[in-house]
């Protein structure tokens, strides 16, 4: 079942990637659709991450170590180009706050 899931997710990746490369110049998307689709990744990323960092045990909890970690990671991504720093900063803040809370 898990492997079937991987194959389906793989198809859901390869088909969009190959779509127009395979079709060539025979078909093209209406410009309105192209413009609307540009927002899909940003909306999807936020919709996946937000509940993970703002909801603790089913309740909306804006102040929690995960959100602090995310803020640190975003700050690192905005301030420096180093691709490792957001991970270091985010994990350090999350684990540091948990240690302080005695968790």
């Amino acid at each position: 079942m898990l492997w079937l899931t991987f194959i389906l997710i793989g198809l859901a990746t390869t088909l969009p990637r190959a779509s127009f490369i395979v079709l060539g110049s025979r078909v093209s998307l209406p410009p309105v659709v192209q413009r609307a689709l540009r927002y899909a990744p940003a909306a999807a990323l936020a919709a996946i991450v937000a509940p993970d960092v703002l909801v603790v045990a089913g309740d909306f909890t804006p102040l929690n170590p995960k959100l602090a970690g995310i803020i640190a990671a975003v700050a690192a991504a905005l301030l420096w180009r180093n691709p490792w720093l957001p991970f270091v900063a985010g994990m350090a803040v999350l684990l540091g706050l948990r240690a302080l809370a005695g968790g």
């Binding site: 079942m1 079937l4 899931t5 389906l8 997710i9 859901a12 990746t13 969009p16 990637r17 190959a18 779509s19 127009f20 490369i21 079709l23 060539g24 110049s25 093209s28 998307l29 192209q34 689709l37 540009r38 899909a40 990744p41 909306a43 999807a44 990323l45 996946i48």
Partner: peptide, 28 residues
């Protein structure tokens, strides 16, 4: 459910439809 994972993957990959359309001429 699996369909939800597929829809999510499709949403995350929709940008590739646009990339694919933009670069398609390069494969003439």
């Amino acid at each position: 459910p699996v369909w939800l994972m597929v829809v999510t993957a499709l949403a995350l990959n929709l940008r590739f439809v646009i990339f694919s359309a933009a670069i398609a001429e390069g494969f003439r």
